[in-house]
């Protein structure tokens, strides 16, 4: 117990003192994960919206593939990106291995399915009558689709939080493609592993607290969005049900 208490109090001291080593790692983590989520949004929102709105042969299979992406093991993604970026890999010429872009690429692959799946669920939760009513008032098909996405926008914001929560706490992929190089590719999760091995529990604990704070903030954000709708009165036309919420996992 003494070890835990001592580590915790030292961790708080490190955080409060603005330790540049710790905060440098935190900044890098935010940069990598935020960039990955942004790319995930650019790719995942249109994909999820298309899967939610379009009707085509093989749609069920496409949705199943996206949902499988939610269970992608980070180490497998790390392995795949490593092989692509290694000198003999298809993208080896980029010279990205053990750099920030490599870590962003791996986390993008992990975040995109979350964003796409939540977007799909959000879009499907809006009754299709909305688009019919929009067209009945004079909207073109494209304008009606845009209105549909606008209706689902709160749930789409949850996609951002879910994607961020999924990648900020993963360790396997960033370790493999980033290499955990001090001041270059070391992020919160890889630093926790390293500091624990070195026996520097206070530093590991401080980083762990920050990671928990991020996960907590993402969950609070999602919960607030999901709780916002039921508090309002249902209009007679009926509001869409909330989309299912995927779990936050690393």
């Amino acid at each position: 117990m003494d070890l835990l208490f001592d580590a915790l109090s030292e961790a708080v001291r490190l955080l409060v003192s603005g330790d540049p080593y710790l905060w440098g790692i935190v900044g890098r983590s935010l940069l990598v994960s935020s960039s990955a989520v942004l790319l995930g949004l650019i790719f995942g929102v249109p994909l999820g919206a298309w899967l939610g709105l379009a009707r085509f042969r093989g749609r069920g299979l496409a949705i199943a593939i996206v949902n499988t992406g939610l269970a992608l093991p980070p180490v497998v993604v790390g392995l795949f990106v490593y092989m692509m970026l290694s000198r003999q890999g298809a993208l080896g010429s980029l010279g990205w291995l053990f750099t920030i872009p490599a870590m962003i690429s791996a986390q993008f692959i992990l975040a995109a399915p979350y964003v796409a799946a939540i977007t799909l669920a959000a879009v499907q939760s809006v009754p299709p009558e909305l688009r019919l009513q929009a067209r009945a008032v004079g909207a073109s098909r494209l304008q009606a689709v845009w209105l549909h996405l606008r209706e689902a926008r709160l749930s789409l914001m949850a996609a951002v939080a879910a994607g961020f929560g999924a990648v900020i706490s993963e360790v396997g992929a960033v370790t493999m493609v980033g290499g955990n190089i001090a001041d270059q590719t070391r992020v919160i999760t890889t630093a926790i592993v390293l500091e624990t091995r070195r026996g520097r529990f206070a530093a590991a604990m401080a980083l762990g607290l920050i990671l928990l704070a991020f996960a907590f903030a993402a969950n609070v954000f999602i919960t607030r969005i999901q709780q916002a709708e039921p508090r309002r009165r249902r209009p007679p036309a009926g509001r869409p049900p909330r989309p299912p919420r995927p779990p936050l996992t690393s």
């Binding site: 909305l130 009513q133 009945a136 909207a139 209105l147 606008r150 209706e151 009926g238």
Partner: peptide, 24 residues
């Protein structure tokens, strides 16, 4: 312009809804 049997009002204010047909 058609008003469906269960007309769907979109999120936002009454004004946003009533202006929608003019906006498009």
């Amino acid at each position: 312009v058609a008003v469906l049997q269960r007309p769907y009002l979109w999120r936002g204010t009454v004004r946003y809804n009533v202006e929608y047909g003019l906006r498009v």
